[in-house]
Write a protein that binds this DNA or RNA. Structure first.
Lengths: 170, 170
DNA sequence: ATAAATAGTTATACTTTTGTAACCATTTTT
DNA sequence: AAAAATGGTTACAAAAGTATAACTATTTAT
C-alpha cells in the first residue's frame, strides 16, 4: 500500500504538471493579446518597457541582468527598454557600491504613479468584461489568479544562453 | 445594514476586479517569455501559428474571423498563420455550406498529434521548474490555473476595430 | 436589381522583439 | 601583474507582429 500510494502519487504528479502546462499555455495567448493590444493603443510605451516597469514594482531593485532574467528578455533589449523608461523618469539607475560593474534599476515614485495610471487605462476593456462576471466567478478568478501569480513568481524563468549568464540562485 | 452590506459588496467587487487585473498583468509576462522563447527554439512555427493551433484544439471549428477574435489577432495575420499551418497539414479549410464567404478552419489529426509533441517540447524547461515544487503547491497551481483558464475562455477578448467586425455573440 | 455589408486575401510599410558579435569597464582568478 | 570572467552597452541583421488600404466574392438590405 505504501508502494502503491507512492506510485499513484507520482502519477498524479506527472498528470498535474502536464495539466498545469496545458492550462498555462492556454491562458497565455488570451492575456497576451488583450494586454499587448491595449498597451499599444493606450500608452506610448512598448509592451517590453511596460513589462520592465511591472517587474520593477515587485522588487526594490534589480540589475540589468536580473531584469532580463525575470522577463527572459535579451540583455541588449533590456538596455533599450530601460533607456526609454529613464527618459520618462519612470526608473533610475544607480551603481552597486559593492561591484561597480553592476547597474541597478529601481522604479521612481513617478514610475509607480504612471504605472498605476497605465494599468487602469490598459485594463479598461478587460474591466468591462470582468464586470459582467457574477460575484462568485469573480471571486474565484481573483483567488485563482493570485495563486497562479504567486507561484509563478517563485519560479525563475531563467535562461543561460542569449547573452551571457542569467539569473543566479535567488 | 442592507444598504451597508450592498456598499461593501460593491466595494469588494471593485477591489476584486482591480486585483484580478493586477494578477493577470503580472502573470502575463512570465508566461509570455517562457513559452515564446521555447516556441522559437524548439519548433519551426511562429508563436502566432502555435496560438492559432492551440485555440483550434479548444473548438471543433472556427472561421478566420473567429480565430482572429479569440486571439485578438489582425485578420491578415490570421491568414498568414493559417497558411503556414495548412502547408504543414496541421489544419484544413472548408467552406461553410450556409454562407460561402466564410472559411472555417479545423485542426487535423496530424495537427493534434504535432501540437501535443510541440507542447511536450516547449514545456520541458517549465516542467523542470514545476517538478521542483512540492506536491501541495503543484496541486494548488493546477487547480488555480484551470480556473483562470476556464473563466478567461468564457470572456471574449474581442475587438471591433482592426479589420472589420470581430466576434459576435457566442 | 442595385447598393451596402460581410468574410477573407493581398500588398505594403512599420514597430517591436530577437539574435549575434564586438566592445569597454570592472572584478576575480591564477 | 596578467588572464579570464562578468555586467553592461553598442551596432546591426533578421524575425514576428501590427496597421492600413485596396481588392474579390458572397450575402443581405432596400
Amino acid at each position: 500500500m505504501n508502494n502503491y500510494s507512492f506510485i499513484t502519487m507520482s502519477e498524479n504528479n506527472i498528470i498535474s504538471i502536464d495539466s498545469v502546462i496545458e492550462n498555462l499555455i492556454s491562458i497565455h495567448p488570451l492575456l497576451s493579446k488583450t494586454f499587448t493590444r491595449s498597451i499599444r493603443h493606450k500608452t506610448n510605451l512598448n509592451p517590453g518597457s511596460l513589462y520592465v516597469l511591472g517587474v520593477l514594482t515587485h522588487y526594490e531593485k534589480l540589475s540589468m541582468s536580473e531584469i532580463g532574467c525575470k522577463l527572459a528578455m535579451p540583455k541588449p533589449h533590456v538596455t533599450n527598454q530601460v533607456d526609454k523608461l529613464i527618459v520618462e523618469n519612470m526608473v533610475e539607475r544607480f551603481f552597486d557600491p559593492a561591484d561597480r560593474r553592476i547597474i541597478n534599476i529601481r522604479i521612481t515614485p513617478k514610475g509607480i504613479e504612471d504605472f498605476n495610471d497605465i494599468k487602469q487605462s490598459i485594463s479598461e476593456e478587460m474591466r468591462h468584461k470582468l464586470e459582467l462576471l457574477d460575484n462568485e466567478t469573480l471571486e474565484k478568478l481573483s483567488v485563482a489568479s493570485l495563486q497562479v501569480k504567486e507561484i509563478l513568481m517563485t519560479i525563475d524563468m531563467d535562461r543561460t544562453k542569449t547573452s551571457g549568464t542569467c539569473c543566479k540562485s535567488e
